[in-house]
């Protein structure tokens, strides 16, 4: 009898597995995966600009000796529009913000900035999310604190809430 029961064990394990698959598939795609890159130097990259007035972004812009906020965003991303006021507030308090626009078009990006304001010192276009992957990011919007040597220090997944502006400023301060 005992042997009979053990024989059903593999099926029972598989049913557990299949249940987690079903739950995983049914969940909306809002998985937050924290970056594995915290404490690691950002790999080299150079992203083109959207035009001549705002310059593009490369890894060298990060390794300037001062910490930066790197914000991944996109014109097609609704939460990005929602966090725009908080980014403006951060910029107003002197936080150097660099933008990386994911899978975007220059014209759409211009319209986005015209509508929601431009808190960014530089904006790089990342058409296939390569740089995002290199940062260990997985979603949009996402904001990283990168120290003066180009090492990732802090990651904020999802839009920045009003209450989190202070956290990011504090993270910038600890990174310097």
């Amino acid at each position: 009898m005992k042997r009979q029961l053990t024989l059903w064990l593999p099926l029972a394990i598989f049913i557990g597995l299949a249940t987690s698959f079903v739950l995983g598939l049914r969940k909306p795609d809002d998985r937050l995966v924290p970056s594995h890159m915290i404490g690691i130097t950002v790999p080299g990259f150079a992203l083109p600009a959207i035009g001549t007035d705002i310059s593009g972004l490369s890894a060298a812009d990060l390794a300037t000796g001062k910490p930066h906020l790197v914000n991944f965003f996109a014109s097609w991303c609704v939460p990005c529009a929602a966090e725009a006021p908080q980014l403006q507030a951060l910029a107003a308090q002197g936080a150097p913000i660099l933008g990386i626009a994911l899978r975007d078009r220059p014209a759409d990006m211009r319209a986005f900035i015209a509508r929601y304001g431009n808190p960014y010192r530089k904006i790089g276009m990342d058409p296939d999310s390569r740089v995002q992957i290199n940062f260990g990011g997985s979603g949009v919007p996402e904001t990283f604190v990168v120290d003066g040597k180009g090492v990732i220090r802090y990651q904020k997944i999802g839009p920045i809430a009003d209450s989190e502006v202070g956290d990011l400023l504090a993270a910038l301060k600890t990174a310097s």
């Binding site: 042997r3 009979q4 024989l7 059903w8 593999p10 099926l11 598989f14 049913i15 299949a18 698959f21 079903v22 598939l25």
Partner: peptide, 20 residues
């Protein structure tokens, strides 16, 4: 996923029923 459940589940059930 449906195929997976059908095949793996079916094979494991057959295993439990028959291998005894």
């Amino acid at each position: 996923l449906a195929l997976l459940i059908l095949y793996i589940g079916g094979a494991l059930a057959l295993f439990a029923l028959r291998v005894g």
